[in-house]
Measured scan of single mutants.
Amino acid sequence: SQVHIGNTTFTFDNPEKAQKYAEKYAKKKGLTVQKNGDVWTVE
C-alpha cells in the first residue's frame, strides 16, 4: 500500500496504516485523500 503526498511516496505493509496516515496528514494540512486501489493520494 502506498501514500502519495506531492512528489513523495510512502510505502506501508498494511493498507489500514496507509489509510490512517493519509487521512491524518490530510486533516492536518486541510487537504483531501483520493483512493485508487491500494494507493492513497493526498492533494
Score class of each variant (00 low, 15 high):
Q19F: 07
T8P: 01
Y21W: 15
K17L: 13
I5D: 02
N7G: 11
K17E: 15
T11L: 13
W40A: 01
Y25A: 05
A26I: 03
K17A: 14
T9K: 12
E43K: 13
G37I: 03
T41W: 09
P15K: 05
K29Q: 07
A26H: 01
Q2M: 13
A18Q: 00
K20L: 13
T9Q: 07
V42K: 00
K29E: 06
H4D: 05
T32F: 06
N36I: 15
K24P: 00
Q2D: 05
Y21S: 00
E43L: 14
K20G: 06
K27I: 05
G6H: 09
A18Y: 01
F10V: 09
Y25K: 02
E43T: 14
D38P: 06
T41D: 05
V33H: 00
N7C: 15
N14K: 07
E43S: 13
Q34K: 13
F12D: 01
T32K: 11
P15F: 06
T11M: 13
V42H: 01
T11S: 10
V33F: 07
E43F: 14
F10P: 01
V42L: 07
E43A: 13
T8E: 10
Y25G: 00
D13K: 10
K29L: 13
V39M: 11
K29V: 06
K17Y: 10
K35Y: 10
L31H: 05
W40H: 02
H4R: 15
P15G: 04
K27H: 08
V39E: 09
K29A: 09
V39Y: 07
V33L: 09
V39S: 12
A22Y: 05
H4F: 09
S1T: 11
A26G: 04
I5V: 08
K35H: 08
T11D: 06
H4E: 05
K20D: 12
T8C: 15
N36S: 11
E23A: 07
G37E: 05
Q34T: 14
E16M: 11
E23P: 01
I5S: 02
K20E: 14
F12H: 02
E23V: 06
T11W: 15
G6V: 06
A26N: 01
V3H: 02
T9C: 15
G30L: 02
G37N: 06
K24V: 09
W40K: 00
G6N: 09
K24E: 14
F12R: 00
D13Q: 11
T9I: 15
Q19D: 02
A18S: 01
D13L: 11
Q34D: 04
D38K: 07
F12N: 01
A18M: 01
A22C: 06
N7Y: 12
T41H: 10
F10D: 00
V42R: 01
P15H: 05
K28A: 12
V42N: 01
D38L: 11
V3R: 02
Y21Q: 02
V39F: 08
K29F: 15
A26T: 02
N36T: 09
V3G: 02
T41P: 00
V33T: 03
G30N: 05
N7E: 08
A22E: 00
N7W: 13
D13P: 12
V39P: 01
G30Q: 04
E23F: 09
T32R: 10
Q19N: 05
A22W: 04
P15L: 07
V42P: 00
K24R: 13
N7M: 10
T9H: 11
Y25F: 10
L31P: 01
G6Q: 06
W40Y: 10
N7F: 12
K24F: 14
Y25W: 11
V42Q: 00
E16F: 10
K27F: 07
G37L: 04
G6C: 15
K29P: 04
V39K: 07
N36A: 09
D38I: 06
Q19G: 03
K17S: 14
K28Q: 12
E16H: 09
T11A: 07
L31Y: 12
I5N: 03
S1Q: 07
P15E: 09
D38W: 09
K35P: 00
D38Y: 10
N7S: 12
A22H: 00
T8Y: 15
V3I: 04
T32P: 04
P15V: 06
L31S: 01
T32S: 09
G30P: 02
P15Q: 08
Q2S: 09
K35Q: 08
T41Q: 06
V42I: 12
Y21M: 08
K29Y: 15
Y25V: 08
H4S: 08
N14F: 04
G37F: 04
G6D: 06
K20Y: 12
D13Y: 09
D38T: 10
V42D: 01
K35M: 06
K24N: 13
V39L: 07
T41M: 10
D38M: 09
D13G: 08
G37W: 03
K27E: 08
T32G: 04
V42A: 02
K29H: 15
A18L: 01
G37H: 03
W40L: 05
G6I: 05
K29N: 12
E43M: 14
G37T: 03
N36E: 10
I5Y: 04
G37V: 04
V33S: 02
Q2T: 11
T41S: 07
V39H: 11
F10E: 01
E43R: 10
S1W: 15
P15N: 07
K20R: 13
T8W: 15
T11P: 03
E43H: 12
A22M: 05
V42E: 00
K35V: 06
G30V: 00
E43C: 13
V3S: 02
A26Q: 02
K24M: 14
K28D: 11
K27G: 06
G37K: 05
E43V: 15
E23I: 08
A22N: 00
K28S: 12
E43N: 10
N14A: 09
Q19E: 09
T11E: 07
S1Y: 15
E23S: 05
W40I: 03
I5H: 03
K29G: 04
V3T: 01
N7R: 12
T32M: 09
E23G: 02
P15M: 06
N14Q: 07
Q34W: 11
T9E: 04
V42T: 03
Y21T: 04
F12T: 03
V39T: 12
G6A: 07
G6E: 08
H4V: 15
T11I: 14
N14Y: 06
H4G: 02
V3K: 02
K27S: 08
F12V: 00
K20N: 11
E43Y: 14
K28V: 10
V33P: 03
E23C: 14
V33K: 02
Y25Q: 04
K35T: 04
V33W: 07
F10G: 01
K35I: 05
G6T: 05
Y21E: 03
T32N: 10
T9L: 14
T41K: 06
N14W: 05
V33C: 01
P15D: 09
T9A: 06
Y25R: 02
K28L: 12
E23H: 07
G37D: 06
N36R: 12
H4A: 08
T32V: 11
V39N: 11
Q19K: 13
E16R: 09
K24Y: 14
V33N: 02
Q19R: 14
V39W: 06
V42Y: 04
H4N: 09
P15R: 04
I5E: 01
S1F: 15
T9G: 02
K24T: 13
E43G: 14
W40F: 09
N36L: 12
D13N: 10
T8Q: 14
K35A: 04
Q34N: 12
N14I: 07
G30F: 05
D38R: 08
K20Q: 13
N36H: 11
L31M: 09
T9N: 05
Q34R: 14
K20T: 09
Q34I: 14
K20C: 11
T8R: 15
Y25N: 02
E43Q: 12
T8N: 11
K20P: 02
T41F: 13
K35G: 04
D38A: 08
G37Q: 05
V3D: 00
E23L: 14
K28I: 12
Q34V: 14
D13V: 08
K20F: 10
V3W: 03
V42W: 05
Q2Y: 14
K35C: 08
K28M: 13
A18T: 00
K29C: 15
T41N: 06
T8S: 11
V33Q: 01
K24C: 15
Y21C: 11
Q2F: 14
W40P: 00
D38V: 07
F10K: 06
K20H: 10
Q2G: 05
K17D: 15
Y25T: 01
T9D: 03
T9M: 13
V33R: 04
V39R: 04
V42F: 09
F12W: 04
W40C: 05
H4K: 15
K27A: 10
A22K: 02
K24A: 15
T41V: 14
T11F: 15
V3E: 02
K17Q: 14
K29I: 07
E16V: 11
L31C: 12
N36Y: 11
D13F: 09
K35S: 05
L31V: 06
D38N: 14
Y21G: 01
K27Y: 07
L31I: 05
